[in-house]
Write a protein that binds this DNA or RNA. Structure first.
Length: 109
DNA sequence: AGGGTGACCCGCT
DNA sequence: CAGCGGGCCACCC
């Protein structure tokens, strides 16, 4: 079995964040607010970003989570990598910005 | 137990 | 349109 490189405190909140992030459909993006709202805490957008920043697992498509204004926000492996990954999924990225109105998802989160 | 940080969001100037 | 400040939440030292 694989040992989860580096032990991380998986809190209930963090686990929920990863769960929701995994549920984001491929080729679409969600905002931190949306994820937070899915957890029942629409005001915890900051905590969500914090949770994702701690996460380094490739199992979590954290690259599909962007800012409310459509900016790619941040990425542990580098913004360019995030943009590239999104493009691979069919999401058009221009100047580190995506169209939330087109790729933004508010479903099944 | 207290204080500071961060991949945020919104409103105002 | 861009810049600044306050608010909110969870985690780490």
């Amino acid at each position: 079995m694989q040992k989860t490189s580096s032990r991380q405190r998986m809190t209930s909140f963090q686990k929920s964040v990863y769960e929701v992030t995994k549920r984001i459909p491929r080729g679409k993006v969600a905002t931190y607010s949306v994820v937070a709202a899915a957890l029942g805490m629409p005001a915890a957008s900051r905590a969500v970003g914090n949770a994702l920043s701690k996460n380094r697992s490739a199992d979590v498509p954290c690259h599909r989570v962007v800012r409310a204004d459509g900016s790619l926000a941040g990425y542990a492996w580098g913004l360019p990598k995030k943009a590239e990954r999104l493009r691979e999924e069919g999401v058009e990225v221009a100047n580190d910005h995506v169209d939330i109105g087109k790729y933004g998802t508010y479903n099944s989160l």
